[in-house]
Design a protein around this nucleic acid. Sequence first.
RNA 1: GCCGAUAUAGUUCAGUGGUAGAACACUACUUUCGUAAAGUAGGAACGUGGGUCCGAUUCCCACUUUCGGCUCCA
Length: 582
Amino acid sequence: MENSEHLAHIRHTLAHLLAQAVLEHYPSALLTLGPAVDNGFYYDIDFGTDKVSDEDLGKISKTMVKNLSKWTEFTHKEVSKGEALKSFAGNIYKAELINEIAERGEKITLYTCGGFTDLCRGGHTEHPNKDISPDSFVLDRIAGAYWRGSEDNKMLTRIYGLAFETKKDLNAYKIQQEEARKRDHRKLGRELDLFTFSDLVGVGMPLFTPRGNIVREQIIGFSRELNDSLGFGEVHTPNINKAELFKISGHYDKYKEDMLSVRSQYVSDEMFLKPMNCPQHTQIYASAPRSYRDLPIRYSDFAVLYRDERPGEMSGLTRLRSFSQDDGHIFCRPDQVEEEIGSVLGAIQKALEVYKIDSWMRLSLRDPNNKEKYLGDDETWEKSQAIMKSLLKEKNIAHKEAIGEAAFYGPKIDIMAVDAIGREWQISTIQLDFNQPARFELVYTDSDGKQKTPVMIHRALIGSPDRFLGILTEHYAGAFPTWLSPVQVSIIPVREEHEDEAEKIYAKLKSESIRVEKISGNESLGKRIHKAKDFNVPYVIIFGDKEKESGVLTIEKRDGSKIEVSLDDFIAHIKEETKNRS
RNA sequence: GCCGAUAUAGUUCAGUGGUAGAACACUACUUUCGUAAAGUAGGAACGUGGGUCCGAUUCCCACUUUCGGCUCCA
């Protein structure tokens, strides 16, 4: 539905209608661009000194509805550059666009409908008043957006509208958004007691509670197991490093503004909290002479990293100042690159199968028009990008190419996950780097006795365990599978006289390393059961007279269904689920 | 960082130019109940700092937080 051309035309037409309404209320506003987007449309406008806020959307919206009835048919005409500039006299934004269109030698067209004319290349519904239902769209919110997406330009006011073919579709979308908000990890994180933030600790620095830390540790444990199967050796490295390290790696020049500096009282060295692990791993590699026979050498690391993200960019667990990665670096010979990347891809696929996350693959390439953003020469980039491309082709892996998304030292294969509100986040990544090994002068002795430079592969299986916890919370809507659940079993004695028996079952489960809690106290049975359910505990054992007599446990699952099993069978079942990660 | 909004118990909300109320949650007691929200009592909040005012949680300013975007993301 989102891709239908007709709907895109409706949305773009509404952007025109919005522009006209805005000018009626703010005659001095300068129009810029107004495209159709997923779910609706927007128009970027320079309001000059006028203030516009959410309250003003109502009146603008009313004017749109009023005007729509007069929007019977679009007409358009081709005009010369001079004519176009004249009709938008005083509007520097339109002038910029007109000049660019003329430079490219394209036709300049003006579209008119309902007495309103805008610079446009077309793409409208033919008869807006017939094609668009006045209750199928709504002005949604005000946002800021830089002119042409560049931070160096003026910030304009963007008005977003939601638009669908029918009112029903619009409502369905609103309901879907509401549902998504219910599984927002920031809300569930508080309700399920997984993590918190403190003004005193600081923005973007999450505090994981015991419950949250269990989930986080399970995520790390799984990555650790996968690392082990790939032949990685886990290392442990410090959080503070001398600036010199980052100068050589290239991070200093590229990201100095985004690193947090640390001062010693005794020495004058410039130091930073580390924003990544790769330069440190090069130093472990460099600590001994390496033979071609030693390669590949693989290091993994779960250290906490620190980046000085700008305040407005932080959000929940998805963007943090302090976070860890399930990081790893492979130092190998050129002839080993393909196999190494292949086996890492295999491990990533295994992880994605277990978590059942919606994702897609992106091949992130260098932007050839912005070469100064990257390290290394053209030849190296051509080579590394060609390796990545042929690898994906050979393995027949579906992916999208993204120009300009490469790391500054090399191309990447990224796995992108989608969160509850439809935003995309990078999780897994595999990066091919010919630059850093050379800059750190890493070598190995090859079979011909010559010193050669190894290739470095950076990789993360699920990215950041912290961020991934947020993504998983939304993915499972807080109902983690048994292996991830902070509490796997709650045991609830019906009355006080069942306490002792319940305690025995509790102790038995505990001794089997099952995460179990007992909910006693003077609250009603039903209330205690709901308490467990509020926390999405997968299994609730209710222990009363019936169970005492029969010796069979009554176990209620999250979905409300009940099973009756012996304690031994139940233990075996949970262990099986934990082992299989289900 | 930029644009717009936001801020009252743990949570969700109410309210006022004379320093605040509810529900759920919490604590104690009562109830021992086979699928929650029964009784009694209690503790608990106006983000921070300025300003206006006799007096500010309420009005103004700044900062901070959070939210929606933009930009950035090794």
